[in-house]
């Protein structure tokens, strides 16, 4: 080797590995928040690298809204088996059954906001002191100010105006009993970086990301997948389209784009030419200008 610098993907990878190792060293009981989406898959892949040749030394945690794509759940179970790590499931359905939260009403009802309670309950009952997430600063304006190590008070809340300064590569995870942290190893990655890296490393991702035929309904400027949870309006029509999903969330709120991209190569090319942000298809972010900031303050991912 003649050059002594890293290319941008190697530098991002090295930074993320460093963060993951810091989490493991500074916390008693961390978990990776695993949704089955590409960002949490990427974080898990990086964790594999961070601890090799040892196994990932902490569990994965899935907040299960019950409104899943079946493909996502299958994928999740395959990943767990492959890694040989423990899976913790926080169930929104259980939170509803226990009366901790109430289901939203109406055709645009989602379980998105309900996840906050389930997540915080799971963090508390499993005594988790650091939940590692796949959040990226390029996703949304409130996330642009997020720290790698992000403090949450004992109510699980984020206080954006009172964040700990983060300098150089020194991370302060000190906390009191009952408080926890969120850690974001891929803060500095953009959507394009994620796809270029997935392509380079040939990381397995759910089939939903690739163009496929699916029954969908046109709603809020995007193709919402037909599912048992979808309440159709009279004027709405279920059609079959070749689509792919750019992000994966609940099946009720995740819109797809019409696409022919059925390989990682084609997806990377497609993403490079995209003229809209990836969260533009997420109705949870469309609710208001500060929808993400408000949810994050309460303890959202």
């Amino acid at each position: 080797m003649s050059k002594y610098y890293l290319n941008y993907l190697d530098e991002l990878e090295s930074e993320a590995i460093f963060i993951l190792r810091e989490v493991w060293a500074q916390f008693e009981n961390p978990v990776i928040m695993f949704s089955g989406g590409k960002d949490s898959i990427l974080v898990t892949h990086l964790a594999k690298k961070a601890f090799y040749p040892a196994k990932i030394p902490f569990p994965l945690m899935h907040v299960d809204t019950g409104h899943n794509f079946p493909e996502t759940i299958q994928f999740r179970d395959d990943v767990i088996e492959d890694l040989g790590v423990k899976l913790i499931i926080g169930s929104v359905q259980e939170s509803i059954d226990d009366g901790r939260v109430a289901e939203e009403k109406g055709k645009n009802a989602t379980r998105n906001a309900l996840q906050i309670t389930t997540l915080l309950d799971a963090i508390e009952s499993n005594k988790i002191d650091c939940a590692i997430g796949g959040g990226r600063r390029d996703e949304e304006k409130a996330r642009a100010k997020e720290r790698f190590f992000s403090h949450r008070d004992d109510f699980g809340q984020w206080d954006p105006k009172n964040q700990r300064p983060e300098l150089w590569n020194i991370f302060n995870g000190k906390h009191f009993e009952g408080e926890h942290f969120r850690a974001f190893p891929i803060s500095n990655w953009t959507e394009m970086d994620v796809w270029n890296y997935i392509k380079r490393e040939n990381i397995a991702i759910p089939s939903l990301y690739f163009a496929h035929e699916r029954e969908v309904v046109w709603r809020q400027d995007t193709w919402i997948p037909n599912s048992e949870f979808l309440i159709l309006e009279d004027h709405e029509e279920v059609v079959t389209k070749k689509i792919r999903f750019r992000t994966l969330g609940d099946i009720t709120i995740t819109g797809g784009d019409e696409s022919e991209a059925d390989t990682l190569e084609k997806i990377a090319t497609e993403v490079a030419g995209m003229r809209n942000t990836e969260r533009g298809n997420r109705s949870d972010d469309k609710r208001s200008e500060s929808a993400m900031e408000d949810r994050k303050r309460q303890g959202y991912f």
Binding site: R137, K141, A144, K145, K161, N188, T190, D193, E293
Partner: peptide
């Protein structure tokens, strides 16, 4: 960025932005 910043028209905290050209990230 944050609600308070939008209301007051100032930057309070460090915000990170990303862009890529064919030469660098």
């Amino acid at each position: 960025g944050l609600k308070d910043e939008r209301e007051q028209g100032i930057t309070i905290d460090v915000a990170y932005r990303y862009f890529t050209t064919p030469k660098r990230k």
